[in-house]
Amino acid sequence: MALVSYWAVISARFRSLLQYRSAALAGLVTQIVWGIIRVMIFQAFYSSTTTGQPMSGRDVETYIWLGQAFLAALPWNIDTDLRSLIRSGGIGYELVRPVDLHTYWMSRALAWRTAPMLMRSIPLLVFAFIVMGMAPPATVAAGAAFMISMCAAIVLSSAITTFLNVTMLWTITGDGITQLTFGLVLIFSGMLVPLPLFPDWSQPLINAMPFRGLVDTPYRLYLGHIPASDLPQHLAHQLFWILAFVVAGRIALSRALRRVVVQGG
């Protein structure tokens, strides 16, 4: 059932995304320009220093292009269909479905994240490789580790998205908490500044947080900055946080539903 709904949502998302071709193209151009700007800024910083850095300038460039390619996989918004369902009170129908609601919502979120990401990432990566001279994975093993870790990153993103969706049952719009979460994601995932460049004293804190599993972990595996042999422990970190968000989401959902049932929707 969850699988069926996953395919239903993913194909619906693809179709609606394909409808807005010009918007998709505009989004692609925006992200390329963004990538170029950020690359130039980092190049300027790197040319200002002679001391060794925790990450080479060339690695940072590849890190930036990966970030642009997989931007859509970040948990940056909530499921608008679910939102209108909650606003209109139609959420009651969701309750009578013969499926586990959290699993169903999570599979929706997974589809919601994958479809736009696939559409954006491929042309962007092609562009970055050919025009911008983005580097391939450090080794074959690094490439494989990246793929595995990236899958975990998307699941983590979906778990966070589902958690945000659940909070809508309390806040109705969900805008506030989404903004708040997105702010944290942006900073502590590595999207703004690659995490190795953060001050050394802050590293233990950043490493403990869930957000590096979205961006920094897979990208550094790609670069070989984290050796592929270290994949298990980093994957464990990602899985731990996936589990944490799923559990939190399930608790919040069952609490919210009890409330909905009591209030009669």
Binding site: Y46, S48, T171, D175, Q179, F182, I187, F198
Partner: peptide
């Protein structure tokens, strides 16, 4: 809530500049 969220995003952008200068010293 929205104001708070946006504050974090924009503050994060400024923090990024500080982080980079902390690392590189100058631009």
């Amino acid at each position: 809530m929205q104001l708070g969220g946006r504050l974090i995003v924009t503050a994060g952008e400024f923090a990024a500049i500080l982080i980079l200068f902390d690392r590189f010293g100058s631009l």
